[in-house]
């Protein structure tokens, strides 16, 4: 038996290595949204590694630009250039702080404008890494438990002051995977602001542009250019009244079954967002559905 196994070790290993991932996919596919301790640990580890790699690459980029400046100018110009660089650096630093300050003020404004929402800040650590999914990984910034804010969980909405970003699909310790509105699997119950027309926003799946499509019943009146699409709250996932996007070109609409489909430009471009808010709890009124059930 041992000799036979030794002789056929490649076949045996190949069989194991082909079957093992199939089992893994079967198990994780049927328990989507809840991860085991090993998966949580490894995902957290890669999350930290990616955060570190981002910082290192940014530092190297800054360092290489300085080296380039040193060798590209003559000695006098070098001194002036250094002075210029210093002033530029100070200016850039001030601008960066200003931008960060503005972003934080917007987030603070969001918290104050929607006091009924329980919000948890999170920092984006990983953007699209593959051509198949529009998923980002964020690091939850308030790891310690607070009584007034429930812990984040799968299904929570992710928003910014500009609008909707997506929903949490997986929580792994202090990291969370967020499926963006532009992911082709994403569905958001919406309404056209000020008209009462309800519909569904479907992700386009495109990596660039961060676009989506909104489907409204054919029987409804044609939507106007720049009509604002907001969440309706009917799906009990996203809080009501969060801006999703606006109609880009109503002339380019097309009929898809019983729906009329319009392209929309998303209100928030996730490629430029560094800090987001996770809605950990919906207001009580919104958690009761239209049929009166909990």
């Amino acid at each position: 038996m041992r000799d036979w196994l030794f002789q056929h070790r490649f076949t045996a290993f190949a069989a194991v290595l082909v079957i093992l991932p199939l089992l893994l996919m079967y198990v994780t596919g049927s328990t989507i949204g809840s991860s085991g301790p090993i998966e949580n640990g490894t995902a957290a580890m890669t999350g930290w590694a990616q955060t570190g790699a981002g910082s290192v690459v940014n530092s190297v980029g800054s360092f290489s630009s300085r080296i380039g400046a040193v060798f590209s100018v003559a000695s006098e110009n070098f001194r002036l250039s250094q002075e210029n660089q210093r002033l530029l650096g100070t200016s850039l630093k001030a601008r960066r702080i200003e931008a960060e300050n503005r972003e934080l003020r917007l987030l603070l404004g969001l918290r104050e404008s929607r006091p009924e929402l329980k919000l948890l800040p999170a920092e984006v650590v990983l953007r699209d890494v593959n051509p198949f999914f529009r998923v980002e990984r964020v690091r939850l910034l308030m790891a310690e438990k607070r009584e007034d804010i429930p812990a984040a969980s799968a299904g929570n909405a992710v928003i910014t002051s500009a609008g909707l970003v997506g929903r949490v699909t997986e929580i792994r310790r202090s990291f969370a995977d967020v499926m963006l509105v532009s992911d082709h699997r994403s569905r958001v119950a919406v309404q056209v602001h000020g008209t009462g027309i309800i519909g569904m926003v479907v992700g386009s799946g495109r990596k660039a542009g961060f676009q989506a499509r909104v489907q409204v019943p054919v029987s409804e009146q044609a939507l106007q250019k720049d009509a604002v699409i907001v969440t309706s709250g009917h799906d009990r996932v996203f809080p009501r009244g969060i801006e999703v996007g606006y109609i880009a070109d109503p002339e380019a609409r097309r009929q898809v079954g019983p729906f009329m489909e319009y392209d929309i430009v998303l209100a928030e471009d996730p490629s430029t967002v560094d800090t987001v808010m996770v809605v950990t709890e919906l207001p009580v009124a919104e958690s009761i559905d239209a049929f009166g059930g909990k």
Binding site: P21, L22, T28
Partner: peptide, 21 residues
């Protein structure tokens, strides 16, 4: 798989092993 948020764990493992064979 660990670096591909959104995908199923084991997917790339299976693909790479099959492609290797």
């Amino acid at each position: 798989d660990l670096f591909m948020p959104g995908g199923l764990p084991g997917m790339q493992m299976e693909i790479l092993v099959v492609l290797f064979l």
